[in-house]
Amino acid sequence: MTQANTFPLVRTVGIDGLLITFADTMTEPSNRAALAFRNVIDSQGWTGVLETSASLASAYVRFDPLLLSHADIRSRIDRLLDEQNWYNAPLPSGRKLWKVPTVYGTDLAPQLDDAAAAAGLTPAEAIRRLSQTRVRVLTIGFAPGQPYLGPLAPEFDIPRLKELTPMVPEGALVLAISQFVLFSGPTPTGWRHVGQTAFRCFRPENPQAFVLTPGDEMIFESVSRDELEDIKAGRAESAVCQEIET
């Protein structure tokens, strides 16, 4: 099922990869399509498929050309694309909803006021809207286990900063271009630091080091600084997790 007679677009990546792109920008439907399509490919169990992944609006398939010819996998991909409208396909099952306590603003997240002004809102209204928004893990990338989350409401389609912030800590919630990123480790960034959590996206000590999976959902609930300190001290949970019913 194509969109505007252009998408989905299937392109070759090297000698052993195909990239299936559902739009040239991230939207809820294009991300839904990428996640759903990747999930269905995984469920097929095709011999010769070595790896799949999904980005903001694309799915990637890597295959062994000695076991699965380019013509064969391209034919299979095309048949799958024609089976349904992927832009309203069901999301993968087994997804989780994470409710993450978050301090907005203060010296812990000092760019909240700037982000609110860029969105045309008061800081209090920005906090109210951001803390009540349920966002999807659109993709994992940039750093181990690190999620891009969204989409946020149109007023939060604000640009990145023109200069880098030298460092934000692990658990920083940053905002730009209608998305959140929840940092999995200390890093410089051009995104606005609007919230601070105690959530660890990357836990190398665990068998499943990446805590989040594309398709999971998150709510960053506003809490006080004292509550965040209790979480850091181990007196409260850094997140509440539940299965999403399909």
Rank of each mutant, 00 (worst) to 15 (best):
A116G: 11
L130A: 13
G141W: 05
A143I: 15
A118I: 02
T52A: 03
N88L: 07
P147Q: 06
D113Q: 10
L130M: 14
L50K: 06
H70G: 10
R136E: 15
F142D: 14
P144K: 10
S69I: 01
D107M: 10
P92D: 07
P123T: 09
R129Q: 03
D114A: 15
F142Y: 13
A117G: 03
Q84I: 04
Q111R: 03
I77A: 11
P101C: 02
G120L: 03
A59C: 13
L121H: 06
Y87L: 15
F142N: 12
D82Y: 00
A89K: 05
A124P: 02
Y60M: 14
I127T: 14
T106P: 12
A126R: 10
A89S: 09
L108A: 03
R128W: 03
A119S: 04
S75A: 14
L50G: 07
R134A: 14
N85Q: 05
G145I: 04
I127P: 02
T102F: 10
N88V: 09
S75C: 09
Y87C: 15
S53A: 15
W86C: 06
P123S: 09
Q84C: 06
V100D: 08
A71C: 02
A117P: 00
I140W: 06
L138I: 09
V137W: 00
W86A: 03
S53P: 10
L112E: 03
S69Q: 01
T102L: 11
V103N: 09
R74L: 10
V103W: 09
P110A: 04
I140F: 05
P101A: 02
I127M: 05
W98L: 14
L56D: 15
S75H: 11
S93T: 13
L66W: 01
L50R: 05
A115I: 13
R62M: 03
S131Q: 05
W98K: 05
I77M: 08
I73H: 05
E125R: 08
D113P: 01
A54P: 10
P65Q: 01
R134D: 14
L50T: 11
G141S: 12
D72F: 01
P101R: 02
V137N: 01
L121D: 08
R79N: 13
R128Q: 06
P144T: 14
D64K: 04
A109D: 10
V61K: 07
S131H: 04
A124Y: 00
V61Q: 07
K99S: 12
K99G: 05
D107I: 13
S58I: 08
G105D: 10
P92A: 04
A117T: 06
G145R: 03
Q84L: 04
E83F: 00
